[in-house]
Every structure is written in C-alpha cells, then in structure tokens.
Design a protein around this nucleic acid. Sequence first.
DNA 1: TGAGTATGTTCAG
DNA 2: TGAACCTACTCAT
Length: 273
Amino acid sequence: MPEGHTVHRLARLQRRRFVGTPVAVSSPQGRFATDAEIVDGRVLEAVEAHGKHLFQVYEADLVVHVHLGLWGRFPNRRVPAPEPRGQVRMRIEGPTHYADLRGPSACALFTDVEVKALRARLGPDPLRADADPEEAWRRISRSRAPLATLLMDQSVIAGLGNVFRAETLFRCRIPPLLPGRELGRERFDALWADLTDMLRAGERQGRIETVRGPSGDQPDGGGARGTDHGNSSCAGSVYAYRRTGRPCLVCGTPIARTTHAARNLFWCPTCQA
DNA sequence: TGAGTATGTTCAG
DNA sequence: TGAACCTACTCAT
C-alpha cells in the first residue's frame, strides 16, 4: 500500500484530526517509548509529507519522522481507543480520533537539522506544491541509467514505488529499459504530468486505479479488476502491475515480468516496445 | 498450520 | 547484489 499517495493522504487526515490540539502519544510496544514521552501531551503544530516520509511537527526541533516501509500501517479511527493489540509502535490520540502505527521501517524523533538533511536527499514530490520538475529533468536527462531504475530512485522523484513505476511507463508507452538521457523533453513533460495525475487520484481515492475508461478517466473495470491476482486492495484496476502473463488491456500481448534491481518489473512488450 | 509473498530502505561486501 | 528489517495477508496442505 504505502507509496507517496498513501502518505500524503495520511498527512491530510492527521492534519484535520490532530493538529492544533494537545495529543496523547505513547508506544505500547516500547520501541518508541523514550521519544513518545517527550512529545506526549504537546500540541501538534503541523503534519507534512515529502515522498514516502511523514513528519509530525510539534516544535522546530521536535519532529516525529515516520516511514512506513513495506509493511507499515497507520490507520486513523474514532475514539474511544481500545486496549492496543499486537505490535503498536506509536499511538497518537486526539479529542476525536486515534491512530496506531504498526510495522514502520522508521519512527523516531528528529531535530530540524535532521529533517532538512533527510529532505535534501529527496527529489521533487509531484504531490507537493513546491515540487520543481526541472530538478527531476536535470537528473534524468543526464543519466545513462534506465527509466525503470531512475523512477524508483527517491532522489530523482520522491514518492514513486513499484506500482506507479509500472503504470506510468505503460501509460506513457515508454520501454522500461530506455536510458534517461534518451527520453527527451516532451516525453518527460508527459511523464511528469501523468505521474501528478495518478498520484493525485490515488491520494483522493485511497488506492491506485490507473486504467482509463473509453470516455475519460474512469477505470473501465476490465480484465485487471478482480481478486485472482490477489492484490485488489493495493491496485484496483491497473494495466501492468502484477498482471504477468495476462493479456494487455490495450493490445492483448501477455504482460511480461522480470527482476530488475531486485524488484519486480512489469510491462507490455508491444505497447512499450 | 506453515509457506510464500508484497507497494521499501539501508548496509555490508 | 543480497541480506536484513518486520507485518499481514493468501493459499496450499
């Protein structure tokens, strides 16, 4: 689940539900206990997302940094909060809602300097108003690395993961192994626009739907829908992601899969020739 | 009940 | 490049 759109959606929800009031922060599991004590009872001032990173700002030098990694979950629910069950790294509780953080790859208290250092390593995030696509273009247009590698590199574009990589390369008809320097400005602009659209839709809907219907942007519910590939909760209707061997929704060619830099890569050999 | 799998990142070699 | 981190879910037995 957690690509950039998930984290931005989370930030928006937490802004609405926790910002501006004192919150109770604890670590039922214990691994965040010392830091939780420091922010417990303080007023949460802001919640920000950059790529897949979430920042809960209490003061300039009191920022809780969360990265969900592959398995992390941070569901927001209405109070009253029940007794924590299982491994809850952090619980945050406000007047109307609480949220239990489970399985994150990172959850730690950061200073302002640490936040800045981390963000300096991240490329522009299409979901942020301050994103500058020129930064991504500079990196891509000078690189010999394939687009499949560049799009997963958080210092090139922040917030993309494997699903969005597969889908944007398909929708833009780009061969995954095309070197960045051979992409060209026009195709880069189309790619950036497509990514922005998909991420925004994903943030709005809370899931990834990328198949365009015949009359616009509505998913058509075609061959990609269903539970037979077991990932309906993460990608509703998609063109390529985890559709290995199934016919391309556009041309019928079986979707191909390979392992690229230790990650699954999916594409249509005809549409993305 | 146990094996297999996954949308991510970091570090050692 | 591979291992480690660490969680929830699906599927086969």
